[in-house]
Design a protein around this nucleic acid. Structure first.
Lengths: 334, 334
DNA sequence: GTGAAAGCGCTAACAT
DNA sequence: ATGTTAGCGCTTTCAC
């Protein structure tokens, strides 16, 4: 049987409470007491039983992070940032992968999985605003990312429309006129694809460029393969274009790979811009021009907001909506 | 106040035990009882208190995954695989990022962080075999990845030497003779860098090719930036080479990016091979030839081994050492 | 099939 | 600065 706090107390000749104090950094303690406790801990190789602490204190010291996918560079980098920020605050992170499936996302929202965390940071991609409104979660929840779900929960958002506008405007200002909107979605739903598509349209409009429907590609999955396949299809169908705006970097990178495979020069024949500024884009050939969407900041703010919620005893303070800044990162693909 | 099991029991007109049975899938229960319980749960929006269950049952239902980094494609893909495999078995995954720092890795090993998991899957990169031998962890631990730490713990290993041998042999068979070993480490320590370097040497030897020390680059961090910088340095110093073996894909991709920036054709002027088969390499230009190192299989086996340890009540069954298979994935960079 | 009672190992008041 | 006393909300014998 593993040693308990009572064992340590007995061996050190103090009470349980004093041992508890020791572990919780209670400052007032004689050095000699401290040393006796340390010796007892060492002797027994004692480890605090976290489950007991959790039950007793009503907290777990862990937060959940629910993302569609972990292998995707954007989410990998986001998760890294969240985990780091959490560790800095002494919080553990339980990662849940939803695969972007609505049912799994609903489980996250409603705690069906049996929560073992104090709060959740959650990037949904399949839920509707209604789903979110009807959430029954019992613990604090911070939404991040792509959709704007006004109201019930704190939210840290990506500047989808503004960023997409700038990306498109950059292509236009370099003289491109036939710009593929790769991964778009024409919808009223507050999805990333729809928001970024709106930004694209607005930039075209401002420049007085007509939007050719053959250049609108989507909805498709936002990964490299889909980007590459879509571009292959455009080429095969003889659609003419002089630029590709990949609504995320994965699409843009997949597109670029396919363009080059087909003998098209980037950026000479076709310019490419992405969105997200994942590390990978710095090392593609050519390096990918993209929109920095504030991943790091988002992760940090989300953890900060959640930590606040956990700290303040239940109370109101309304809900916070934060919008990340964005910035064009010019590299060689335009 | 949140509802407790006692509340549910009272409202359903049964005992706590019966409600507990309900949640634990105990099969013998009248349908009518079951329905009354379900109604009470619904009415109270009751959620089982995981902390209490954990304390009572002595298990947490979570496993830890400790990796150096999450944003790195290899670890992102590995983590994804581990999380998926664990979720399939109903286990949650608590991710810990060690930054490859020895002290953080020691914390993982010795449970200093206060464990809230039943077992750990751990890829150390900074620990010595001695550190591992002296581990005081109280819970099952499965080691994965790069070093061979025979003895104390179950281990799932990458075929570093064999894989590196095949990668190098492939370059040699394509007629290359001056092959950079990018990221190598000449050491007796059982590190990935040393193992892969040994494979490289063996392949050269078998082909009767002399090893030029100017082509040995390392130790350097195994990321894209380091790969790119190292290649830049070689070029600037006028070192001649006709191939690069990046000891992982990140190094190879960084190298390839830099080669092309300097106007060198891949594979015409310089052939490139990597190691790991991360998804990114399928979409670089040219696509990266690499060694598939069995990431998925490793993740699955690690979870499986850990699940076994958790299931079987403490007993012996020695320790298991599994070696993943490997395979050359030919693409366009050679 | 269901109930009663005894902990699991800790934290948190409160007392000293 | 340290000790005492109650629980936290479940699971788990063991009865019925």
């Amino acid at each position: 049987m593993a040693a308990t706090m009572a064992d340590v107390a007995r061996i050190a000749g103090v009470s349980k409470k004093t041992v508890s104090n020791f572990f919780n950094g209670y400052p007032y303690m004689r050095d000699e007491t401290r040393q006796r406790i340390e010796a007892a801990i060492e002797q027994l190789n004692y480890k605090v039983n976290i489950s007991a602490r959790n039950l007793s204190s009503g907290r777990t010291g862990s937060i959940g992070l629910a993302v569609p996918e972990l292998a995707h560079p954007y989410f990998a980098e986001l998760s890294q940032a969240v985990v780091s920020a959490a560790q800095r605050r002494g919080l553990n992170v339980l990662v849940e992968v939803t695969d972007g499936k609505r049912t799994r996302e609903l489980d996250v929202l409603n705690g069906t999985g049996g929560r073992s965390v104090d709060g959740i940071i959650f990037e949904p991609i399949a839920l509707s605003p209604d789903d979110i409104r009807d959430a029954t979660t019992a613990i604090p929840l911070i939404l991040i990312g792509d959709r704007v779900h006004e109201g019930r929960f704190d939210f840290v958002a990506v500047a989808n429309e503004a960023g997409a506008h700038d990306a498109t405007a950059h292509l236009l200002s370099s003289g491109r006129r036939r710009i593929v909107a790769l991964g778009m979605e024409d919808s009223e739903e507050p999805t990333a694809a729809a928001g970024r598509y709106r930004g694209y349209l607005r930039a075209l409009e401002e420049a007085g460029v007509r939007c050719d429907p053959r250049l609108l590609v989507g909805p498709i999955p936002w990964n490299r393969t889909a980007g590459a396949d879509a571009v292959a299809r455009l080429i095969d169908e003889g659609v003419e274009f002089d630029a590709v705006f990949g609504l995320n970097d994965a699409l843009a990178l997949g597109a670029m790979s396919q363009l080059q495979r087909r003998g098209l020069g980037v950026p000479q024949d076709v310019a490419v811009v992405g969105f997200d500024n994942v590390d990978e884009g710095r090392f593609s050939s050519p390096a990918l021009t993209t929109i920095e969407s504030g991943r790091e900041w988002i992760a940090q703010k989300a953890v900060e907001l959640l930590a606040q919620r956990l700290a303040s005893p239940e109370e109101s303070m309304g809900t916070t909506l934060l919008m990340a800044g964005h910035r064009l990162v010019e590299r060689d693909s335009v």
